[in-house]
Design a protein around this nucleic acid. Structure first.
Lengths: 106, 106
DNA sequence: TGCACATTTGGCAATATCGCCAAATCTGCG
DNA sequence: CGCAGATTTGGCGATATTGCCAAATGTGCA
């Protein structure tokens, strides 16, 4: 694999890596419905606010979300809605896996 | 976030985590065109065969690829073609990011 | 200015991931 | 059986990720 091809796949992996965490996945899912500030997300998630903030930083660096201040609060919004396409396919993988499991039992 | 919701996002993250590596992304991309055996992929990737084999194990455990023996060789194939939808969106994230960069410079 | 609230940053321990090497398996065949 | 080729597994050091706490920073307002 030449350097350029490698760089391409590394760039892609960066984006996907940013999604590869349950909390960040939840955040993306939630933001796909409405923008939210850190405190709001922290509440829903039930982790330390600093933890949530760092997850948001990861998503932001990847370019998946964007933030804007509104008073003392920082609101985050989904920047690339097509990310939601991931879920459909992921769900189908999970379903396929489950079916395979079932077949083994039956 | 209640335990069930958490479990759901964890399951989803498992799948995405399996994709979150340049080499594995390359493998998935390649397998979307044709099935291939380990030696073949190893050649294209240029890493130790044991490394490639382990990447394939990760993809297989996630249910993204499946394998079948053909003589002494093990062929891998994409099990869930919709995974390829990821690329389109990832590409658009990369493009959006690049445009943002440009705007900063201009 | 100084307080209260919202968020980010620094730091650290626990854990997970990665890639290579060496050794173990597995397969077809003489 | 025993060898050669293909693949997987075990193990290890290096590196990256994660989550919490404490401390720092930013913001609106009295």
């Amino acid at each position: 694999m030449d350097a350029q091809t490698k760089a391409l796949y590394e760039a892609r992996a960066e984006i996907i890596k940013a999604m590869a965490h349950p909390t960040r996945l939840f955040i993306v899912d939630h933001l796909s419905r409405r923008k939210a500030c850190v405190a709001e997300l922290t509440n829903l998630i039930g982790a330390d606010m600093s933890t949530v903030s760092k997850h948001l930083t990861v998503l932001k660096s990847a370019g998946i979300v964007e933030d804007h201040k509104q008073g003392a609060q920082v609101y985050y919004a989904l920047r690339v809605p097509c990310i939601m396409n991931f879920f459909g396919c992921v769900e189908s993988v999970i379903k396929t896996n489950a079916n395979r499991q079932l077949r083994l039992v039956k």
